[in-house]
Amino acid sequence: MPTELEELVGFIANPSQQIRLVAIENLVPYSLSQPDIFKADKFVPIKNLKLLVKDHPQIAEHVLTILINLSADREVLENLATDETFLDTILSYVTLPNEPNANLLSMLLANLAKWDAFQSILASKQPPPKELGSDDLVMNQLMDLFVKGAEGTYNKDADYDHLVYLFADLTKHAELRHYFVRKQDYDGVIPITKLKVFTEHKSHVRRKGVASTIKNVAFDVPSHPAFLAEDDINILPYVLLPIIGNEEFDEEEAMAMLPDLQLLPPDKERDSDPTIIQTHLETLLLLTSTREARDLMRSVQVYPVIRELHKKVADEGVGDACERLANMLMRDEEDAPTQASGGFIDQGAVEDDDDDDKVVEV
């Protein structure tokens, strides 16, 4: 005899919309506490849930919440991320300017990116809504959604913040890193430059995800000259501003800094999250891979910024990253890397950002 819970799961395929709504609403907590009930009968409940994404928005809201939570299970994740028909539905719905569940769809996409083969999304194409003003490449549409959708300006019900966790996971793959540093034909813009403006955004999700994405893209060493060129990606101001506070530098140091770092207001605050600060420091560490980059950072007085940051932020990860970066900037270029003054240590390994590798739950 089926249990009461198993019967409830069976009701999600009921012909009555009202019964489906009641069943789905009551099943949401079980997607966290008893996820295996949705994998019964060779994933039949999952199959039904995927169809209900297109149901009444109120039902779809609960369905998406359940799928977001269930995607923490590796088997469910594979089932969702490898279903091309389901993915086409998700991608077509998330881009609609009047989609009420766009934020939940963004969260689900971010979780699906945990499946390595999901990087094939780079080649995916679909007709864009005319309101989006994008081209038929899905990645360009998602990027434009993230940018134009901030503050609810594209869809009054969504800010698309969680798409940035999708970008952060995708940029762990070399092919996707290349996408972010290539000028796109339809608008003549390099995708990473669309993200850099959010390093000081009020949304913690945006700041954290953008920092991780920039860091992961910085593993593409051939793109470093473009990263640093003022007339190209010009990433330095956007990485340095979040880690600088209201410190006072001596006149010689201040005058040599990047224009964006000069004459900051006295109430300037650095990012409140030490993990975001550490991520930006690790991006700078990656950019010290070439002599040209190290010389540029010295000339624009990156070291004093790091020196003051090291004094002001009492966090082990930040302190460690400050010391490694200072060592790279202060070392004698004629010698092999050696320990610099002030107790700074040699540069350690910097790994792909895993901070956003956690599945979102709602």
Rank of each mutant, 00 (worst) to 15 (best):
E25N: 05
Y30L: 10
L70Y: 08
V63M: 01
A72C: 09
R20F: 02
A23P: 00
V44N: 08
V53E: 06
S33H: 04
N48W: 06
K42I: 01
K54M: 06
P29Q: 12
I37S: 07
L70G: 11
N48V: 14
S16D: 15
Y30W: 13
K50N: 03
I66W: 03
A23S: 13
D55G: 10
Q58N: 10
R74F: 03
L27N: 01
I19T: 14
D55I: 07
K54G: 01
P45D: 02
R20M: 05
Q17M: 13
V28K: 11
D41A: 14
E25L: 03
I68A: 04
I46W: 02
N48S: 07
F43Q: 11
E25Q: 12
K39Q: 12
N69K: 08
L52G: 10
V44E: 14
F43D: 06
A60F: 08
K39A: 04
S16W: 11
S31H: 08
L51A: 10
L27S: 04
Q18S: 13
I12D: 00
K50I: 11
E75T: 11
Y30I: 01
A23F: 03
R74Y: 05
Y30V: 01
I24R: 00
S71P: 09
A72F: 07
Y30E: 15
L51C: 03
A60S: 15
K47N: 07
K50R: 15
L70N: 11
V53T: 14
K39T: 15
L51E: 13
V63S: 05
D73C: 05
S71I: 11
K47L: 07
Q17D: 09
L21D: 10
P29G: 13
L64M: 09
I59L: 08
K42N: 13
L51P: 00
A23R: 00
I46K: 06
V22G: 06
Q17H: 07
N14F: 00
F38M: 06
N14G: 09
L27F: 07
K39L: 12
D73M: 04
H56L: 08
F38C: 07
V53H: 09
S31Q: 09
K39W: 03
L27A: 02
H56P: 00
N48M: 05
K39D: 01
E61A: 06
Q34C: 05
Q58L: 11
S16L: 15
F43W: 04
I46V: 15
